[in-house]
Computed example of a mutant assay.
Amino acid sequence: MAISPNYINESKYLLHVRPAQLDALWKEGWRHFGTHFYRYSWASYDDVLCMVVPLRVSLESYKHNKRFKKILSKNKHFKTTVSLISLKEEHHVLFDKHKQKFTHTIPQDIYVFLSRQPDKIPNPTYQINVYDTENNKLIASSFFDVGSEAISSVYGMYDPEYHNYSLGIYTMLMEIEYAKSKQKKYYYHGYSYDFPSMYDYKKRFPNIEAYDWRSWQEPKNIFMKPLPKRIYHIVKLSDWHLDHYQETEIRPPGEFIHCSYAQQVARSANKYFSDQESVLVLHIAPERVHSLIKDEYAPDGLLFPHIYGYIPKMAVFRMTLISKNENGSFEFDETIDNDLYE
Rank of each mutant, 00 (worst) to 15 (best):
K27L: 02
Y186Q: 15
K185F: 13
M319P: 13
V48L: 05
F304K: 11
E277P: 15
E334K: 08
D239Y: 10
P226C: 03
A315Q: 04
V52C: 10
L292S: 03
Y211H: 02
I336T: 05
Y187Q: 04
N325V: 10
M157S: 12
Y187V: 13
Q100L: 12
R251G: 06
Q276V: 08
G301H: 15
A266T: 09
E177G: 05
Y40C: 14
Y191K: 08
F317I: 06
T248H: 10
K97N: 06
L55Q: 03
Q117L: 08
F95P: 05
D333W: 10
S329M: 07
Q108N: 13
Y261S: 04
I85V: 02
E175D: 01
N123L: 15
Q246R: 07
R318E: 06
P206S: 01
H283P: 07
E247I: 00
K229H: 03
N135C: 05
S268L: 11
A210H: 07
N65R: 01
S153Y: 06
D212V: 00
E60H: 06
H92W: 13
A150K: 03
T125C: 06
L302A: 12
H32K: 05
E247D: 13
Q246V: 02
K324D: 08
Y162Q: 03
N338H: 06
I293K: 07
W216H: 11
V316I: 08
D339K: 12
D47H: 11
K137V: 13
S152P: 05
S73H: 10
K79L: 06
D96I: 08
K203L: 04
I293L: 08
V112C: 14
I208A: 01
E90N: 12
V265R: 04
I336Y: 11
P219I: 00
K202Y: 07
E218F: 01
P252E: 01
K97Y: 13
H163D: 13
Y188M: 15
A2N: 11
T133R: 09
M51F: 03
P122N: 04
T248F: 03
V154N: 14
L282Q: 13
D212N: 15
M1L: 01
K12W: 06
I222T: 10
R67G: 14
F113M: 12
N9T: 05
S11K: 02
V53Y: 00
S181F: 11
L14H: 03
E249K: 01
D337V: 05
L303P: 15
S215M: 06
F205G: 14
D333V: 13
G29N: 10
S142C: 03
F256A: 09
Q263V: 04
L87W: 09
T171K: 10
D145I: 04
L302M: 12
E218M: 00
K180F: 04
K88G: 12
I208M: 02
Y158A: 07
C259N: 07
Y232C: 08
R56D: 05
L25Y: 07
H283F: 13
Y310S: 12
S197M: 00
S197K: 01
N65A: 05
Y191P: 05
H241F: 11
L302C: 09
E10T: 00
F205W: 14
Y155H: 02
I85Q: 12
Y45I: 15
N221S: 01
A269L: 13
M174C: 12
G254C: 02
K185Q: 08
F273L: 09
D132F: 11
Y232D: 04
